[in-house]
Design a protein around this nucleic acid. Structure first.
Length: 437
RNA sequence: GGUAGGAUACCCAAGUGGCCAACGGGGGGAGACUGUAAAUCUUCUGGCUUUGCCUUCGCAGGUUCGAAUCCUGCUCCUACCA
């Protein structure tokens, strides 16, 4: 069956690819979809509502799935929800949300769109990706036209049976507004428009999108008289039961201004042992052999954490680029106890951006220098001088990653790095950078 | 309203005239081991100008050379009785 389209011979079987990665949660008609995908390039889409000015790691699974489809020779459409974002998707939400203002939404669309565009190839000749905004075709439609042309095809009886609506209707306390109730129609409208205008026959999304996707398929059948497919990706769960995508500082964002590359790297390296192979399959583009090799290494010696390192490296490189990934690794080595030999000022400044900083006057270090105990209290590492002394005696205090043993020690200007920094550490991972002015 | 009991450090909880900055457990800090894991072990856990000093045992007074501990009053809690 080769030669339908040039380059088609090399197309990989995306369904089997997703299946072994564990990325196939559900599909409206797997056999038929498989046939369509094998017969030639299929156009597919996935929507991302701009609820914030950046996407987060939780958005990666569907986003990378679009990329996987493109690599397999299909045509992905990344859809920014300029219209749907105004309304708010009730799926998976237990309570009504506040509406975003038009200004915030506009800024969010900007941010999200630029991120979406980085993962797809828009220049490819055979199957270039598309970036669209559903406000473009939704905003011009009048309310009356929408009710007549689209609303008419929806039965309330069916809509209230959808899980996202049903759970909210049963909860008398939160309820659901007419606005959010209508969300499903807008998303269905998107699918129908995309099928009509862009031959888009497949929608993918998280498993919580099932109801919205099937609503769209129904609308496609009714208005376009053309079959459409839905495929959902699994919800990512952590083995320890916590919510995926959260670190101690909150959500892990793709925007480096919100989550630094270093923290992003740390997020992945801290993956639970039980999840690491699963995540390599979910998130990376490593092939079966490479992952099998990492799995073998992980089982032989989990302590070396080869799989974790590779996962963190792959993900940081994918999102932030090679240079940032390298710097994150170096910063990690230093912040986890490595010596400061050979450190450059630029790497130190990277580190300074990751840990609390405190400013001290240069004059403090003249003469006999500043007492270590006082400095620890000023830096906020120790709550009292007594505690600071105890910590030093317990061997828990480090200056520039060298253990301090004398509770009466003083810090002099000669200890300054680059003539203006000190790296203070208490215990394994409490760092403060002291910067001298 | 009556009777009985209680209020101790971040939490639980011993202590009932000097040996009490106050047992023990939890939580937390640090150390060892380790894999930036888990478990385990050690150690610290009121403050300071730290071989000592100061402030703490519901609040306010009092007795005493000396009080978390005894007395008086107050506040709050719990139980049983009305």
């Amino acid at each position: 069956m080769p030669n339908l389209v040039s380059g088609w011979e090399t197309m990989i079987d995306i369904i089997h690819e997703l299946e072994w990665r564990g990325l196939l949660a559900d599909c409206t008609d797997l056999d038929e979809l498989q046939k369509r995908l094998s017969a030639g390039p299929v156009t597919l889409y996935c929507g991302f509502d701009p609820t914030a000015d950046s996407l987060h790691v939780g958005n990666l699974v569907p986003l990378l799935a679009l990329r996987r489809f493109q690599l397999a020779g299909h045509r992905p459409i990344a859809l920014a929800g300029g219209a749907t974002g105004l309304i708010g998707d009730p799926s998976g939400k237990s309570a009504e949300r506040n509406l975003l203002t038009h200004e915030i939404l506009q800024a969010n669309i900007q941010g999200v769109s630029s991120q979406l565009s980085r993962f797809l190839d828009f220049e490819k000749t055979e199957n270039p990706a598309l970036l669209l905004n559903n406000a473009d075709w939704t905003a011009p439609v009048s309310f009356l036209d929408f009710l007549r042309d689209t609303g008419k095809h929806f039965s309330i009886n069916m809509m209230v049976q959808k899980e996202s609506v049903k759970s909210r209707m049963e909860d008398r306390a939160s309820g659901i507004s007419y606005t959010e109730f209508s969300y499903m129609l807008l998303q269905a409208f998107d699918f129908q428009v995309l099928q009509k205008d862009h031959n888009c026959d497949l929608q993918i999304g998280g498993s919580d999108q099932w109801g919205n996707i099937t609503a769209g398929i129904d609308l496609c059948r009714k208005k376009n008289a053309r079959p459409a497919f839905g495929l959902t990706l699994p919800l990512i769960t952590n083995a320890d039961g916590s919510k995926f995508g959260k670190s101690v500082d909150g959500a892990v964002w793709l925007d480096p201004a919100r989550t630094s590359p270093y923290r992003f790297y740390q997020f992945w390296i801290n993956t639970d042992d039980r999840d690491v192979i699963k995540f390599l399959k979910f998130f990376t583009f490593l092939d079966r052999d490479q992952i099998a090799e990492l799995e073998k290494l992980h089982e032989e010696n989990p302590g070396r954490r080869e799989a974790h390192r590779r996962l963190a490296l792959e993900m940081t490189t994918l999102i932030h680029g090679e240079a940032a990934a390298e710097e994150s690794i170096k910063a990690s080595q230093i912040l986890f106890g490595g010596g400061l030999e050979g450190i450059t000022e630029s790497i130190f400044r990277e580190i300074a951006g990751e840990v609390p900083t405190c400013k001290v006057q240069k004059s403090e270090f003249e003469g006999d220098g500043r007492s270590m105990v006082d400095l620890l209290v000023d830096a906020g590492l120790c709550p009292s001088k007594g505690q600071a002394r105890k910590d030093i005696q317990a061997g828990g205090i480090y200056l520039n990653n060298i253990r301090v043993t004398d509770p009466a020690a003083a810090v002099a200007s000669s200890d300054l790095l680059f003539d203006k920094f000190l790296l203070l550490r208490k215990g394994k991972k409490n760092y403060v950078v002291v910067s001298v002015e």
